[in-house]
Write a protein that binds this DNA or RNA. Sequence first.
DNA 1: GTGCAGTGGACCGATCGGTCCAAATTCAGA
DNA 2: TCTGAATTTGGACCGATCGGTCCACTGCAC
Lengths: 209, 209
Amino acid sequence: MSDRVPGVMAPQRYRHLLATAAREFAGHGFEQASLNAVIRACGMSKSSFYHYFGSKEALFDRVVEEASAALARDLAAPVPETLAGADFWNRVEAFMAGALAASAKQAWYADLGRIFYLPDLSAERSAALRRVLAGVEDWLGRVLAAGRSCGAVRDDLPASLQAELVMALLQAMDRWSLVHMPEFDAAALPGLVQRQFAVLRRLLSPDAG
Amino acid sequence: MSDRVPGVMAPQRYRHLLATAAREFAGHGFEQASLNAVIRACGMSKSSFYHYFGSKEALFDRVVEEASAALARDLAAPVPETLAGADFWNRVEAFMAGALAASAKQAWYADLGRIFYLPDLSAERSAALRRVLAGVEDWLGRVLAAGRSCGAVRDDLPASLQAELVMALLQAMDRWSLVHMPEFDAAALPGLVQRQFAVLRRLLSPDAG
DNA sequence: GTGCAGTGGACCGATCGGTCCAAATTCAGA
DNA sequence: TCTGAATTTGGACCGATCGGTCCACTGCAC
């Protein structure tokens, strides 16, 4: 009956470990996160952990890999070049709405978000995180290029700067929402999200809208 | 000849200690910063340090206090309400140019900047940092209010969100500049700074400019 | 039985912030 | 100039925590 496979953890313990680790890493960053705390919370002993993972870094990499893979699976990010056209901004908005809905559904995804843009310092240690960051950066860069190609995105600033600004704005909105959301009633929420999207659009659109 | 005052460190040693600590805190955040590394770098022993400071936290507080006091002295931030008027944006731009010039002059100020917006986690420990953050937040809020009162700043988003977005943008520009500045020749620099300011203005101005 | 995946837990060396005390240094009063 | 108190210092030491190692013991499969 048991689905045990040698060298592989039982699925539910594995999920529990990764979720606990994700929370810990998201909350404290890689260096400050306590591996001891994670395995303690999972009722796991040191030797058991090190039987399956080579190091704290390996656990971090696994968390990043699994979470980003799941997110990519759920998100179905469009090929950037297909966004170009007259309704560039409508397509972007549609994707963002979908992304927002998906990420609100899974705490797992929020942890991944906090992992990959809160602590710049953690990135240096994890090849997996660097890979994911590079992937997002590349995708965003191509989206911006597509927007420029159809006149929907202004070109008076370096694209790399625009990408950094977009990431910063999204992160700031996220952070603000976490803190101030409870103050707003649910009815005002869709309008707020829409106005937040409008901020991005205003930032990137050429002057003569 | 010696200007020794009981219970007070010799001025140059004091400055060296604070500067070293500022760099360490800015680079690693409060928790991850190594007090041992700081005093080692200053050729100071544990007991000497603890003779003058009660704790690592006290050192952090002192760094924040001294740096922010020096910055406030150099900056001469205008009373927000005096910015209101037809040339709100010109006044803001003038102030920002002055602030940029002042902060570029002193490495000390850059460290303070990194200290107070990179690690949200460090803020919880230091009353001094919380106080400075609250002061900046309050000042920025009043600037935004002044801008609204004269129609220079849009009011379709919560002011607290606008403040957070402004901080995020400034930080992102800062970070981007640190990385990408070397790629641009000095001639292109003033135009770039101007366009970065234009980004802020575009973010905050009402649609019908 | 025998072998091996899996586990508990003692243990390691390093680093952390912080304490303590005795020696060194400084300085005032005689 | 000597002396005694106060200030300042070096450095051993403390308990805790860290990531990581090691080994003996379990329990199941063949």
